[in-house]
Amino acid sequence: MFRRLEDSAPERIEIEIDGEPVLVPAGISLAAALFYLDAMPSRRTQLSASPRAAFCMMGACFECLLEVEGEGSQRACQLQVRPGLRAWRQLDPLEPGANS
């Protein structure tokens, strides 16, 4: 859905999304990384399993919740990527902790 402007800083780092290693620009938020990777939806709601993705990018809407390093429902827009970071999309609404 989003691409990196070509003339911006070229450094890439490896992180893990849903157990898959991926390369993303260094210094961006985890929520931005998901848009960069087109990893949509970034979660499903527990009530109706409807697909969602980051909406406000400033910590207010809580739509970008992700499981990060074993901790559920972290705001991906408030976390910077770092090499080796492991995150899971919460795609199984019945078992939010089932990924880890």
Partner: peptide, 14 residues
């Protein structure tokens, strides 16, 4: 605003 944050903080554009 989210679009603008992606641009400012991550150099991401649609």
């Amino acid at each position: 605003g989210a679009g603008q944050i992606l641009l400012k903080s991550a150099a991401l554009v649609p």
